[in-house]
């Protein structure tokens, strides 16, 4: 339409009056809020101009026609991995939790389907995703309270600018090695549709307008990562003999000192590491000979780390990080 072609105007609706100058303004059909997502879908933008002028002594007021434009729905899903660092895991561990946020950055209420991909490139192993869980609102994974996601029946429905925390639970393969990294991608896709940004779905928007895919194309995704933090322990046991004649011949009455060195390796730590060793047949434990490093341990099951019971020694080392060693010694006599 040419702007100078006056003859093509639709007939202007004229209202004569004097108080209308500022009186005809826009009305919003849907309550509007100042949000990042913008004007709520379905809002009507109504524009009316007015003019006053004088013809002789008479002031006349005229309103223009009202243009009404309905704001259509813009669909934008944003997914963010929200763990501050790689989630530490161990080979074979189940129920390992990654946390994501799914945010509706569109301007209309929208429901999103959730899915995962664990065959990402650039990582060392593929976690096995066992479930997707919808948080109950506190941001903390609680197996009894949070809802296991089932595609369709409990798709998250989000208002504009609203977000929900989603947990992805995975099993770490037994074969994953220490320091390996495994990624899982969470995808939130608009139930209205996905596709190239700018794709329009006629009449599918909130408030009766169209739905238009925003910059994310109707689906958002982000990758979260696990990091295997394994540790292992190796035990080396040695014996030294000293007999009553001052040499190392293992004759009856000789004292054998056993030394067990536990060495941990890896980036993780070993919890509740304990060293057990049975007293060999044909020997007798020397009471009070148990030591952890240079510290003597009593034989009773008491506050210290060691005890002697059922003809075996036990030393509880607690949680030992990788890269350390502990030395346990005890003595027996040859019968």
């Amino acid at each position: 339409m040419s702007f100078t072609d006056i003859s093509r105007f639709s007939g202007p609706k004229q209202t004569v009056g004097y108080a209308l100058l500022l009186g005809v303004s826009s009305l919003a059909m849907v309550p509007e809020a100042a949000l990042a997502a913008g004007t709520r879908a379905g809002t009507l933008i109504e524009n009316t101009a007015s003019a006053t002028y004088d013809v002789g002594p008479t002031q006349i007021s005229v309103d223009s026609n009202t243009n009404t434009v309905r704001v259509d729905e813009l669909i934008n899903a944003v997914v963010d991995w929200s763990d501050s660092a790689d989630v530490m895991t161990l080979p074979g561990s189940t129920g390992q939790v990654l946390a994501f946020s799914v945010t509706n950055n569109g301007n209309g209420e929208e429901s999103f389907s959730l899915s995962t991909i664990s065959t990402l490139g650039g990582d060392d192993y593929d976690p096995t995703v066992t479930s997707i869980v919808i948080d109950d609102g506190d941001g903390i994974y609680e197996p009894g309270q949070d809802t296991v996601y089932i595609p369709g029946p409990n798709d998250p429905v989000l208002l504009p600018d609203a977000s929900v925390t989603i947990f992805v639970l995975s099993t770490t393969p037994a074969g994953a090695g220490d320091g390996d990294r495994g990624g899982v991608q969470l995808i939130a896709a608009s139930r209205t549709g996905t596709g190239a940004p700018g794709t329009s779905f006629s009449g599918r928007g909130e408030g009766g307008g169209d739905a238009v895919l925003g910059t994310t194309g109707g689906d958002g995704s982000d990758d979260g990562f696990y990091s295997v933090s394994a540790a292992s322990v190796s035990l080396v046991k040695s014996a030294s003999v000293l007999n009553q004649f001052g040499n190392a011949n293992p004759i009856p009455g000789a004292t054998v000192t056993y030394t067990i060195v536990a060495t941990t390796t890896g980036s993780g730590s070993l919890a509740n590491l304990a060293i057990n060793d049975a007293v060999p047949t044909g020997t007798t434990y020397v009471p009070g000979s148990l030591r952890l490093g240079s510290t003597a341990l009593t034989d009773a099951a008491d506050a210290d780390a060691g005890r002697f019971a059922s003809n075996a020694i036990t030393v509880s080392l607690g949680t030992v990080p990788g890269g350390q060693s502990r030395t346990v010694t005890f003595q027996v006599t040859i019968n």
Binding site: Q14, T15, G17, Y18, V24, T48, A51, V62, N65, T66
Partner: peptide
Amino acid sequence: RNLFLFAAATAAVPAFAQADPSVSLAS
């Protein structure tokens, strides 16, 4: 088109000037 607004405006405002409302304004 929001005809309602025009109807309300016409009803609320008494006719003041009966002179030729000859200027048209279109938006």
